[in-house]
Design a protein around this nucleic acid. Structure first.
Lengths: 247, 247
DNA sequence: CGTAATCTTGAGTCACGTCAATTAACGTGG
DNA sequence: CCACGTTAATTGACGTGACTCAAGATTACG
């Protein structure tokens, strides 16, 4: 154990109670609404197709609409004062996006691949929620889910080195049948190295280097830049138990 | 601008629309509930005093209660697979804490200073929310606030170096009259270097070194280990505009 | 098929994590 | 109230992970 000489950090007792888990990070598909609720929601929503790279909503713009992913993948990002982009999350079918802050979008949402989204006007939604406690609770639950997702990213960014963060992300993506084909162990990355880097809080160069290292260590194989073969998922998972820095 | 040779990152357009803002990070006091609502909430809550360092709720335990800070400061933390602690947030009066995940607390909450909390049984709360759309919306709003807080931490951890993260945190704390006395420019840190380090995703040693550097640069002065004089708040804020790495 | 975007690799340097040792603060009991 | 043990804070030395800059290879696309 590290730093045994300091108390008050209560690491040991907390560790005992801990369940094994990885950090999903990506908005995992959760059944937000019952089919019946979905219909009611669709009655106030409009469908919109967004081309690859297309804008769904933009940081700084008035937030009249809330979005629900229907198909495809979207990237939620924000630009820091220093001018660098941070990708907050990738959103899949069923995920909510476009939360406002004081009536303004604080993030930018773009389609990574061609996508379809439901556009829901806030006005109509708030009326609906007021009349439908069950739907209201569903939204509360979804919001709580997003809090947890964000907290897992805080864990990753605060504790793990880049190799661990990347491994976590790959393992997360493997949960999605859209991206992972178990027979051939092939994981399809729809993202550029930049998207990856900005999501992981690093640089494209470092992402490439880490991928090269994982390949050298026999954990993955790069079939093409956007297509990986996962050769040792357990090995990737084992990385996560190591310390941030091996010194 | 950095990396002009790459498109598709839409940094420029987003930067344009960007408002100036720092990353609050700490749960800023927001009027969650109207006085009337507070009374209704207190009718199903019990008050509890927690001594310094005392446990409010523990990771892995069944989550029967939701908590609202009434007085003092609490620290929400989680331990990673590698055995290191990450402080997710510090919670002040008015903040909610103790969100469950599948009926279990995923974080540990402890009082940093002596604190008082409202303990609210989930059963009673859910009944109350079902009957009170206004209160329901208040909780939704609060949850949305927590999502934003978490996103700001993701920005900080993903983009900033330790000096920037620490500066952000100091500037955040200055918003609280409990900790900052504007006349003497004195900021009272109730936290150990460990709490600071685990919040900022770094080590106590590095925190100390950064504090020493900030002092050397005339931005702060260490009166004692837990009491700082803020000599140049603007200087601290200017740090945030710099790149993560000066190369 | 050419041009631009993306991906990859290399070289060099710095930020920061680790280990180790010293100093300061903080109870606690005699 | 002070000696003493324990915990926290600080500083130094050192190694390395990861960022920056730069250049080449590969892919995507009109």
């Amino acid at each position: 154990m590290l730093n045994m000489n300091y108390q008050h950090r209560d690491i040991m007792p907390e560790l005992r109670a801990r369940r094994m888990e990885r950090s999903p990070g990506v908005g995992q598909a959760v059944n937000l609404l019952s089919p019946e609720q979905q219909i009611r929601l669709q009655s106030i929503a409009t469908l919109a197709d967004v081309p690859r790279g297309g804008l769904i909503f933009g940081e700084g713009n008035p937030a009249d609409l809330l979005f629900v992913m229907a198909r495809g993948m979207a990237r939620i990002s924000r630009v820091s004062l220093s001018g660098r982009r941070q990708v907050m999350a990738f959103k899949m079918a069923g995920d909510l996006l476009g939360y406002p802050e004081q009536g303004i979008y604080v993030n930018t949402g773009r389609a990574v691949s061609a996508a379809t989204v439901y556009r829901i006007p806030w006005r109509k939604l708030s009326v609906l929620l007021r009349r439908d406690p069950e739907m209201h609770t569903s939204f509360l639950t979804r919001m709580a889910f997003d809090v947890r997702q964000a907290q897992k990213r805080i864990m990753a960014l605060g504790q793990q080195n880049v190799a661990q963060r990347l491994s976590s992300f790959l393992l997360d993506l493997m949960e999605y049948s859209d991206f992972y084909e178990p027979q051939r162990c092939q994981l399809s990355l729809q993202l550029t190295r930049f998207d990856l880097a900005d999501y992981l809080g690093t640089t494209p160069e470092t992402v490439v280097r880490i991928l090269a290292r994982l390949e050298h260590d026999g954990l993955i194989r790069r079939l093409t830049a956007r297509l990986l073969e996962i050769r040792d998922a357990d090995g990737l998972a084992r990385l996560l138990e190591e310390r941030r820095r091996t010194g």
